[in-house]
Amino acid sequence: MREPVLVVEHLSKRFDRKTALEDVSFTLDAGEIVGLIGPNGAGKSTAFGILCGLLRPDAGNMRYNGAPLGRDRGRIVSLIPETPDVYPLLTVWEHLVFVARLCRLAGGWEARGQALLERFDMLSARDTLGSELSKGMRQKTLVAATILAQTPVLLLDEPMIGLDPLGQRGLRAVLRDLRAAGTAIMLSTHQLETAETLCDRVVILNRGRLIASGTIEEMRSLGSGTLEDVFLEITRS
């Protein structure tokens, strides 16, 4: 049986006396969207920080295609953070140039970048500075720039926050296309309806521990209603 593209095993992380993650294991396969959900302080952002190399775990290991996730993880994993920090003095297009040159993307990226901007309805803002963008536009800029890098694993931390309904629909469509193209996607969200409609599986964290995981149907079968009902039942117990 083929191993999932990303395997996370026994991940633990402490900040001083506070345990942020304890013995968390999950997998992520190519062409699937996994929702990472949990109450505030559950350890979702810490897990993402470790996966993209911002933080070093105290214990545990991560493998991509069977090989340890090491120093070249910038080629494999990319993160779209909750706060859309764009460069204030670069235009939207210059953000794409920045990523393309940093990642040494092959020729043809310009057409893909143009298409991404069109997809996010950002073409008219192509030459607008980061400092002049609204929060939603900044989020779209970061998403477009990060997707342009074409990493096989994409992490999104609360990606829908700040986006208008049209932007949310656009992002959902882009994520589905990326899934169809084989990208392994993990997104953290407090919007359980989003997780329910978009994700193939969910991983539920609470106080740094993994308390449940499975497909949406499997999760629903644990309780007596929607994913939200199940989530509230198991995180309160």
Partner: peptide, 13 residues
């Protein structure tokens, strides 16, 4: 810079 995920893209040390 270090807090920006864009900084960490690409396989550079």
């Amino acid at each position: 810079e270090l807090r920006r995920p864009l900084f960490w893209l690409a396989p550079a040390a």
